[in-house]
Design a binder for these strands. Sequence first.
RNA 1: GUCCCCAUCGUCUAGCGGUUAGGACAUUGCCCUUUCACGGCAGUAACCGGGGUUCGAGUCCCCGUGGGGACGCCA
Length: 465
Amino acid sequence: MTKVRTRFAPSPTGYLHIGGARTALFSWLYARKMQGDFILRIEDTDRERSTQASVDAILEGMQWLGLDHDEGPFYQTQRFDRYKAVIQQLLDQGDAYYCYCSKERLETLRESQWAAKQKPRYDGLCHGRTDIPEGAEPVVRFRNQQEGTVIFDDRVRGTVIFNNSELDDLIIARSDGTPTYNLTVVVDDLDMEITHVIRGDDHINNTPRQINILRALGQKPPIYAHVPMILGDDGKRLSKRHGAVSVMQYRDEGYLPDAVLNYLVRLGWSYADQEVFSREQMQALFDLKDVNKAASTFNTEKLQWLNQHYIKEMPASTIAEHLQWQFNDQGIDTRQGPAVTDVIDALKERARTLKELAAAARYFYQDFDTYDEKAAKKQFKQGTAEVLAALHEGLGTVDHWDLEPIHAAIMQVCKALDLKLGKVGPPLRVAVTGTAMSPSLDVTLKLIGKQRTLERIEKAIDYIK
RNA sequence: GUCCCCAUCGUCUAGCGGUUAGGACAUUGCCCUUUCACGGCAGUAACCGGGGUUCGAGUCCCCGUGGGGACGCCA
């Protein structure tokens, strides 16, 4: 049995978006599961739109997600000689021909066909043409046979049949001599010995054309697997031109790559009732035959749930590495203050994203001059200053600044003032955090530290007066 | 318009001829609770429509409807 080889072949005309990432994930998973190779290929034959910045963005996205490739990245622009040779071969064989039709004529042709309620297609005017117009820069068209059918067994769609009569003679080389997609993809998948072509189902219509080119070259087609699209909230396909979000934007928003991967893998694929998959489990359990046929809609809320799951389950030290980006972004310096891992343990059950987590951690590292308006209004009233003063005194006597003594000191103040904890805790929380929500008080105070706690209580007393 | 593809709770999905149609997210209620969360328990919620096939259809077939895609000297 030959080794499985899959590939991801984006065109560098934008960042790596969430739909492309899912396609890449499926290709990568299948290769890993089958202990095959995963190849990265950059389809940059469109010189007009391809940019180095896009190549870099795609590479960065793949790396962030941890989708490592075994070969590549290969660039199609570096393989022009090879394509040229294949085009010449097709020309020599009579499977391709020069076409001198102007863009204007083609445009007119399409319009009239549309008006006649027909499928727009090239009419084959230049096939067999012997006169060569003066100064024309011809394109090369592949001669598609008109009889018979193309049948392929798609791993997710099942048997797919096309009538050759639906296909027209497609352009395989532009007038400047550069090759186009349907030619390069065939040549590359052949040369790179790709066994399984896993791609978005927007390519399903291209497949019979590619198979015909393959036949003309005397080669056998690879196995195809067309995975469904991901739709945006509006039900429209997610694409670069339509509302797709860069995977790097998910990092910026505070999502863990494992959460994004886990979310993505369950979009269009399932394994009974299981929702959470480690990378290893995905690789072991993924199978093309379990991929859905229907398009699915992206749902951020479920991603958030998974993200929090990973924030809670992963080691705090690992979270800390990813969190550093957010601290930098939010201008929080964590070099002074409690250990980041302790802060993570205290806050991880209250944050769905790392962005939220970093924001919630701010008061552990920075003093503040203002209080949350609603919280201050509700908790700072007449008499609160006295309560805080008592807390200041009580906490001031705590020598061993730890959970138990802190808790005992607070309870002692409650007892002395004959107040319930519900009257003492909330104002203390606002005083030391500036907000109405935080982890439990003993944990919060411990992490803030004795010195800072006492200072902030004093400050709050001044503020109330 | 032509061709192709698709169709189970709001969303992601399980189901592979006989199920009280299951799970997850979201949502609602209750419990836990010094706040916010977490957690626990319970609930609301779906087979697009119409014809067949069959003793029996969410499951198979056909038609309709709806949605998506392709129809480029883009990929």
